[in-house]
Simulated scan of single mutants.
Amino acid sequence: MVRNPLIVSKKFTGVYHKVLLDGDVSFCINYKENGKVKWVTIGKKSEGINEAFCHQQRIDIINKSKFGEQAPIIKNKAKKKSSLFDDMAKEYIDNQDLKPRTAYLYKNYLNYLSSFIGDKSLSEIDADEVKKIKATLKKNEKSNATINAHIAFIRAVFNYATKNEKHKGVSPCENVDLLSIDNNRERYLSVDEVKQLKQAVKSDAMLSLFIELSLSTGGRVETILSIAKKDINFIQRTITLTNHKAKRTYTGFISDSLLALLQKRCNAIKDPNELIIKLHSKSKDKPFQAMSIRIKNIMNELFNSGLSSRDAKNRVVIHTIRHTFASHLAINGTPIFTIMKLLDHSDIKHTLRYAKLAEDSGLTHIKGLF
């Protein structure tokens, strides 16, 4: 069988093509390296390859051969063609319908990742790069959940870029293993520690009200921050709470320690739609992160001295308040299904972890059994 001959490009030096038996066109280039002619097949017309592309590839290879790397002008052009991670991550965040908390976390992830891969094009980032980030986070004693979240964010950015045809190829996270996570935080505040916490925030009216609302309802941060005056019913001593995670409302109750503080705040509000927790003007646009940072600093000072940042079981965090609410309900003998209802859990399995805290919950029944 006679092979189809190579046809020399009339426009570009060192660029050739030949017509294949199926009618497609195959392109290749040649160049000299150390006095020897080298040939490289670039691709087919059906794959989007043309003479101009081959010409550019040839220039890139020659420059790399001469200078040991791509010439600056070529490198810059390549980066412009392939989006930088920083730019793509910002575009991804801007185009998602994110809850305030998620948006805050994503921006934190991006701020951290920028120092590693922010100015790199997506095509330059590989699995080794992600593994370096993972190792550095671990060295800095970040929790397994935090490390996994950073990797998941990188994956999400690449998936977004691929979906929108701004990146070709697999995600660099494909061959990076996630770390195992133990979500069962065992730490909750004792009665004395609750008193310590209340004392620490006593001078700040809004912070004090936030803590009392959290201890009285067990609501998550977003839930507490979204309570408006219209959600309060002093006659029935109830609060309509929003589960932003499940996108539904449920009922919480006003404890004795919360009552006076809440009445004072509601008396100062005229608009029924106004939020109960009102932060200072500097932080009003970012209530979740502002409150999280303030509470975190207080928790660290009061309870986390000497503990590793990776010690998830023993460190006190803002979610510990919700855990404290449920734990003391169980200790006081509250039925597990009532705790489930007060926490607005969808599955009893999530609530059963508190059952072990009611150590003598069966004692009354056993005493007079026979």
Rank of each mutant, 00 (worst) to 15 (best):
R3T: 10
R3M: 15
N4L: 03
I7L: 06
K10S: 09
K10M: 04
F12E: 09
L20M: 12
L21Q: 13
G23A: 06
S26R: 05
I29G: 02
Y31S: 03
G35C: 09
K36G: 07
K36W: 12
V40D: 05
I42N: 04
K45A: 14
S46R: 08
E47Q: 14
I49W: 07
N50F: 08
N50E: 11
E51N: 08
C54M: 10
Q56Y: 12
N63S: 10
N63F: 03
K64W: 04
A71V: 07
A71Y: 13
I74V: 15
A78H: 15
M88Q: 11
A89F: 01
K90V: 01
K90E: 10
E91S: 01
Y92K: 04
I93H: 00
D97V: 12
L98I: 05
L105R: 10
L110D: 01
Y112W: 04
S114V: 00
I117R: 02
E124L: 03
K132L: 11
K134R: 15
E141Y: 13
K142Y: 03
A145W: 00
T146F: 02
H150T: 00
I151Q: 04
I154V: 13
A161K: 03
K163R: 15
K166Y: 11
H167K: 11
P172L: 05
D177W: 00
L179V: 07
I181W: 00
N184A: 04
L189A: 02
K195H: 06
A200L: 04
F210A: 07
S214D: 01
S214M: 00
S216C: 01
G219P: 04
T223K: 01
T223Q: 07
I224T: 03
I227Q: 01
K229L: 02
N233T: 11
N233M: 06
I239F: 05
T240N: 12
T240K: 14
L241S: 10
G252T: 14
F253S: 09
S255G: 11
L258D: 12
L259F: 15
C266V: 14
A268F: 08
I269G: 08
N273H: 15
L279Q: 12
K282Q: 14
K286F: 11
F288K: 07
A290N: 05
A290S: 15
M291C: 15
S292D: 12
S292R: 13
S292C: 07
E301L: 13
L302P: 05
L302R: 11
S308R: 08
R315V: 12
V316W: 01
I318T: 14
I318K: 03
H319I: 10
I321E: 00
I321Q: 03
R322N: 05
H323L: 10
S327N: 03
A330P: 05
A330D: 05
T334Q: 09
T334S: 07
P335C: 07
I336C: 09
M340F: 00
D344Y: 06
I348Q: 09
K349A: 14
A358R: 09
D360A: 02
L363W: 07
T364M: 07
I366K: 14
G368D: 07
F370G: 08
